[in-house]
């Protein structure tokens, strides 16, 4: 009788453990719907699951771009679901039912910066190559790379960290306006490192680590905001030494900077 009770208890504990694993597994996705343009842990899981069942062949980076979108549509089509490229409750349920997601492995590889895949039925060790190109961290217009955004954030922080948010977005916008302007180099690096163009480059403050506010300001500028109203120069009237800069037509003043053409 005692042996039966022990066996029953053992089975009960095992059952609860399996059930809890299942519960964790099914609740891994958050409640929100996912669509093209989304980013984050949910998208990492989506990409990993689609790759596990052979629909997705791109990088697992947490950015819902076109690669993920087409893979999702193919998945929806094959499983007789409405083909809309949106991950709702039903898509999540179906994906969880037919795929596996080893969060520790996937996120571990991302954290280590390794190049890796997550195809089902293949040993995980064979799917990892150490070291890779840096992955895209943000959803940005196609023409800007993460490197561009990092440089812009460094420049904004070095040049305008004490300025109002509007002033920081305006500094980033001036750099972007210069890229489009015939009088200046046509790359982010070319404009920022043009000798004498920015004080932060001359005094080395460009290499300070930018804060989240500066990064957010850059994201807003590359997404289309220009509080400088098309300016291509700015200067601090208290510290400016060049006579020439005073000859430029002035547009507006934000914080300590005057923005001009």
């Amino acid at each position: 009788m005692k042996r039966v009770a022990v066996r029953f208890l053992f089975l009960l504990i095992a059952g609860v453990m399996v059930l809890s694993l299942f519960v964790i597994q099914t609740e891994a996705f958050s409640a929100r719907d996912l669509a093209k343009g989304a980013k984050g842990d949910d998208v990492i899981e989506l990409q990993a699951r689609l790759q596990y069942i052979g629909f997705y062949h791109g990088e697992i980076d947490g950015n819902f771009g076109y690669g993920t979108y087409w893979a999702l549509r193919n998945f929806q089509e094959q499983y007789g679901m409405p083909v809309d490229g949106i991950v709702g409750k039903n898509v999540k349920k179906k994906l969880q039912g037919i795929s596996d997601y080893d969060e520790k492995y996937v996120k571990g590889q991302i954290a280590k910066g390794n190049q890796f895949t997550y195809y089902g039925g293949q040993p995980l060790e064979a799917q990892v190559k150490k070291g890779s190109k840096p992955q895209k961290q943000m959803q940005t217009p196609a023409k800007y790379s993460d490197q561009d955004i990092k440089l812009l954030a460094n420049a904004v922080y070095g040049e305008a960290r004490g300025e109002p948010y509007e002033g920081q977005v305006a500094v980033a916008a001036v750099i972007l306006n210069r890229i489009e302007h015939a009088d200046f180099p046509d790359t982010v690096g070319g404009v920022i490192f043009q000798p004498g163009a920015f004080t932060a480059v001359s005094d080395g403050q460009i290499w300070l680590t930018p804060n989240e506010r500066a990064k957010e300001a850059v994201i807003d500028a590359i997404n289309g905001w220009d509080p400088s109203e098309n300016a291509i120069y700015y200067f601090n009237p208290i510290t400016a030494t060049s006579k020439w800069i005073w000859s430029r037509p002035q547009i507006k003043k934000i914080g300590l900077h005057i923005f001009c053409n």
Partner: peptide
């Protein structure tokens, strides 16, 4: 549409 940490940017 593009999602970032605190907001969605729509065009």
């Amino acid at each position: 549409s593009r999602e970032n940490d605190v907001a969605w940017h729509f065009v």
